[in-house]
Design a protein around this nucleic acid. Structure first.
Lengths: 149, 149
DNA sequence: ATAATAAAGGACAAAAAAGTCTTTTAATAT
DNA sequence: ATATTAAAAGACTTTTTTGTCCTTTATTAT
């Protein structure tokens, strides 16, 4: 695995895609999202449910329904997206997996990993969903695996 | 999960413990390691096998056998331990899981995550197994979950 | 009201990670 | 040589993660 779980990776891509659509006041369905971010459709459904329950995205049922973001969600940090899916272990946990590791009783790597976690936190707190929308809307960035740039 | 897999966490703790024993020219068996780092004994065996195959630790069979490190292994970087178990995805992979993400065709988070990965790499390359031995041998650091400091 | 649409929810299946058990191989002490 | 010790190897089980499918609920257009 990479830095995050597969679910969290899908979540990030999905949220960016929804943000892009919301920019045009357009709700998007699971199918369209899945097609655009290369994710299995039913599995993505589960992830979107979680994001919805955690207030990261909004949804409406029925015809013309789908997922969307309001200004409120646009200002969510990427760290909140990650936490909604993977929890906060990556932000606070001990690198060696020692539950009793703390400032008071630091593990051998505690000091070193503080820097890594701080950098990770700083960056993921600094990125809001709105922040990338311009680039995404301009088409300079892509969320899927298509070959042609 | 945290930053690394459970297996990698056990591996780091085990390698530090073996380093500490090797400092005293003492080989250690799976059972003793497992007891001291809070890991399931047979599972740890598998992990030590992998570390051995990858040249991170040495082992000898038979009476008075066990795991140990020579000066050569003492100079291994922590990043090599992680890579032996988890592979190198965490050091090179795209945060969003996009396989085609690259310098040329960066994903929306590419630039931001470069900094995180660089910091992670810098730290894990900077830590050799020998480096922590003094502290460990002096007993200032611990590798298990025991309550009394 | 009714039909159509789309997310929510729950039960299930497959794959991967984590963990266990037993047998084999290599080393060493007697 | 033989018994003993300890890692290596392989087969297996459990748990977690990932992924699928089917039914229900809510919304909207007619």
């Amino acid at each position: 695995m990479g830095m995050f779980s597969k679910s969290a990776e899908y979540a990030i891509r999905a949220v960016f895609f929804i943000a892009k659509s919301s920019y045009l006041d357009k709700k998007v369905g699971i199918k369209e999202i899945a097609n655009n971010i290369d994710s299995p459709e039913p599995f993505l459904g589960k992830i979107l449910q979680q994001l919805s329950r955690n207030g990261i995205v909004r949804s409406s049922k029925g015809p013309n329904g789908g997922f969307y973001l309001t200004d409120e969600e646009m200002n969510k940090k990427l760290s909140e997206v990650i936490k909604a899916i993977d929890g906060d272990e990556i932000f606070i946990g001990c690198a060696m997996g020692l539950s009793q590791c703390s400032e008071e009783f630091p593990c051998p790597l505690h000091g070193e990993f503080k820097a890594v976690r701080a950098e990770l936190t700083r960056i993921l707190n600094g990125v809001t969903l709105a922040k990338f929308n311009d680039e995404l809307v301009l088409g300079q960035l892509k969320l899927n695996r298509s070959k042609n740039s």
